[in-house]
Simulated scan of single mutants.
Amino acid sequence: MIKILLVDDHAVVRMGLKMLLDHHADMEVVGEASEGNEGIEKAHELKPNVVVMDLSMPHGKDGLSATSELKKQMPEIAILILTMHDDEEYLFRAIQAGASGCILKSAPHEELIQAIKSVSNGDAYLHPSATKRLMEEYLSSTREEDGDLIHLLSDREREVLTLIAKGYSNKEIGEKLAISVKTVETHKGNIMEKLHMKTRPELVAFALKKGLLGHFL
């Protein structure tokens, strides 16, 4: 049984959620609160598995502040943020506050049920559009970081990196580029230092990401 605490400043919203969730045999709404401070008190009293927390509550403590405080006091509780804001700023702030997930108030009922089950099991849950934006943000930052790093490599080091990624041994790379094995090893060491990497798989992944395997065939 998943014990759920609802924290939302709208009584009608809480009533609708309670009716929906209590309809599921493996879920039980054990309490309600209308603002963050009351939610924290009820969480200590009722020991729910999941707190469904409204993000915007104008009276009392807001959802982000309550989430941050509650996670410090009761880290075992999963908090699912319920919000009408489809905005990445709120999403990032909710995650930073310690929320296990974030779902839009406009989401289908089935999605809310799945989200509660996911965070109850210790998993994270983000609504689909949020997941897409997080991925885009991550890939964007990764591209920027990689772009900065690859410019640190000399032309020769890029050649060596490409051949390493293609599976050539140090000896084969030396023969292919007409340099000594020792020079290859020196280049490889410099590459790892510049890219902050320690293993061949990391170098291969970087080369793939940068599209280097299409060169020096």
Rank of each mutant, 00 (worst) to 15 (best):
R14I: 06
N49E: 06
A25G: 00
S129Y: 12
G189I: 10
E159S: 12
A66S: 13
L213Q: 10
K42I: 02
N190L: 10
A165N: 02
E45K: 14
L20R: 08
S68I: 03
D87M: 04
L212H: 07
R158W: 10
M1V: 04
L70T: 11
G167F: 13
D155Q: 14
D86E: 14
H85Y: 13
G16R: 09
V181Y: 13
L82W: 11
A115D: 02
H85D: 04
V119R: 08
E145R: 13
I116H: 02
V181M: 11
K47S: 08
L6H: 05
D62F: 10
K176L: 10
K198E: 15
R143C: 01
E193S: 10
V13L: 01
G36N: 06
M1Q: 07
I40L: 02
K117S: 01
S180L: 01
M135S: 03
P75F: 12
E69V: 06
G36E: 04
R133Q: 09
I179R: 06
I173Y: 04
Q96A: 13
P48K: 12
M84H: 07
K71W: 05
D54I: 13
N121R: 15
I173P: 02
L152W: 03
G101D: 07
H59N: 12
R156N: 09
N121G: 09
Y125L: 02
A43Q: 08
E137Q: 09
L195C: 05
S180V: 04
A94E: 02
T199N: 07
K42W: 07
K61M: 15
L21Y: 04
M1G: 03
T142G: 02
D26M: 00
G39W: 01
L6S: 06
P128E: 14
I77F: 10
A66H: 08
T186F: 11
E159A: 14
H215K: 08
H187V: 03
V29K: 01
Q73R: 15
G174N: 01
L64H: 05
L139C: 00
K176M: 10
H85R: 09
V184F: 02
A130R: 02
I113P: 03
E159M: 15
L82V: 01
A99Q: 12
L213K: 03
